[in-house]
């Protein structure tokens, strides 16, 4: 296994992938990772891909549409639809880097993972290692993401990583990340300002 054992929390398995993103399925009963969480997928013994949960799909169907109009719907039926019928919950994962032979890189993984590869939620140690490596270059993947809500994805990730870094003694990380975001988007006022407003909320939550 290419990753730190402390984060060995499987959250799902891979459904489909390309070089930039993948979709994993997971049981709805379990606590699947939150939007913006960092996950990793082992590609082989020495290589892992890192990605952010960029979207979570809960699909509806005719039965659910029929049920929502029914009064006094029983808890068992609600649970049936959540647990039994909504399988799997699909997580879209945006690749943001990889670890190869122990070295973290903020470039896309060398190849996408394969069907049914295990998707793991990263622990704080791994989050710190990934977000603290290099010069935050991976933020470009988030900001350039076309099919995902980039501003909120960024905010969610910076909250998770900011907490981890703060708890591991680096209280400046969040400010450095914001600085990087500003650098990347400063020529685009219309995009940058709403993103910074979202990050203002994150800062408040971090208490920094």
């Amino acid at each position: 296994m290419a990753n730190n054992p402390q984060m060995d929390v499987q959250v799902g398995r891979l459904l489909r992938a390309n070089t930039r993103a993948c979709v994993a399925g997971c049981q709805p009963a379990q606590r699947f990772p939150a939007f913006g969480a960092l996950v990793s997928i082992d590609l082989d013994e020495n290589t892992s891909a890192y990605g952010l949960v960029a979207d979570i799909h809960i699909d509806d169907d005719g039965l659910v549409r029929q049920l929502v109009t029914t009064p006094n719907i029983s808890e068992a039926v609600i649970q049936d639809n959540r647990v039994n019928r909504n399988v799997p919950v699909e997580l879209s994962i945006l690749f943001v880097g990889h670890r190869s032979a122990g070295v973290i890189s903020h470039r896309l993984p060398p190849r996408p993972p394969l069907s049914l590869d295990r998707v793991r939620a990263c622990g704080e140690g791994d989050i710190c290692a990934f977000s603290g490596a290099g010069r935050l270059g991976y933020l470009r993947f988030i900001l350039d993401a076309q099919d995902f809500p980039a501003a909120d994805l960024l905010a969610a990730h910076l909250l998770q990583a900011g907490r981890a870094q703060r708890d591991h003694g680096d209280s400046q990380w969040f400010a450095q990340a914001v600085d990087k975001v500003i650098t990347q988007l400063r020529s685009d006022y219309d995009r940058l300002m709403p993103i910074l407003e979202a990050l203002a909320d994150v800062q408040q939550e971090l208490g920094s």
Binding site: A29, S74, E75, A76, Q79, D80, V83, N84
Partner: peptide, 14 residues
């Protein structure tokens, strides 16, 4: 086979 406790709140077994 799907089994449900009509008085419970657990998801039915499948």
């Amino acid at each position: 086979l799907i089994s449900m406790n009509t008085a419970g709140s657990q998801p039915p077994g499948v």
